[in-house]
Amino acid sequence: MAGKVIVLTSGKGGVGKTTSAAAIAAGLALRGHRTVVIDFDVGLRNLDLIMGCERRVVFDFINVINGDAKLNQALIKDKRNDNLFIFPTSQTRDKDALKRDGVERVLEELKEGFDYIVCDSPAGIEHGAITALYFADSAIIVTNPEVSSVRDSDRIIGILASKSRRAEFNLEPVAVHLLLSRYSPERVRKGEMLAVEDVNEILSIPLLGVIPESESVLKASNTGTPVVFDEESPAGRAYHDAVARFLGEQRELRFLQPERRSFFRALFGRA
């Protein structure tokens, strides 16, 4: 087995990288692919909370890099899906603990046992973020329909094209995909938010999916459940679509129109 390395990155913080990494990894696992999701945000561990396994962390990424623990001691098996594993990061304040050769060794070992290795990048363009994207085969650029997020995404796309391992060794370039999150069709209709077409035209990379702004995302993080496990949630279903597209399926974009108000609310509700 030779697993594929997928990085979720954005440049800007707070756009939904960890939420998306958890959802995409769980979505891949639900489709039968052996998947591990790694937290690269050394010092600001959060993936464990989003995945709901924060009380099961014993060893972490840095322990394995330093040889203090074996990989199978650090990997946490998800309780909801047998194909899904979580690899938490360390809370150390030493950001440089993420050594590139150590990361490479761990990733190579993971590739033997997994179909997909999903890397949750920290924000910014410092050491941690560069290490997270360096070994990527594919990148999912998580972007909000907002000027600073789009600009930072463009910057990260440039870095992937010039500083990744694939760029340095003149290999086939990292396959980049756009995941537009926190999208509000209602605000787009009113002209208050960049439309998916605008962002797609500006960044000009293939669109993997549009995740609507949804209350279920906060609910999911409150309970430590990746949002794809919520069958009712529009965001969860949009992530399922994105995973299907990532695997090569053709799927129409959904949730791009404002929700229709019911006849009753149309009669009595305010505009």
Binding site: V147, D154, V188, G191, E192, L194
Partner: peptide
């Protein structure tokens, strides 16, 4: 002009500039 249109135009200009210098 809606604020989204302004956002789009500003982004196009700033990114064209940044990409060229990059």
């Amino acid at each position: 002009r809606s604020s989204a249109v302004i956002a789009r135009e500003r982004l196009k200009i700033v990114l064209a500039h940044e990409r060229a210098s990059r």
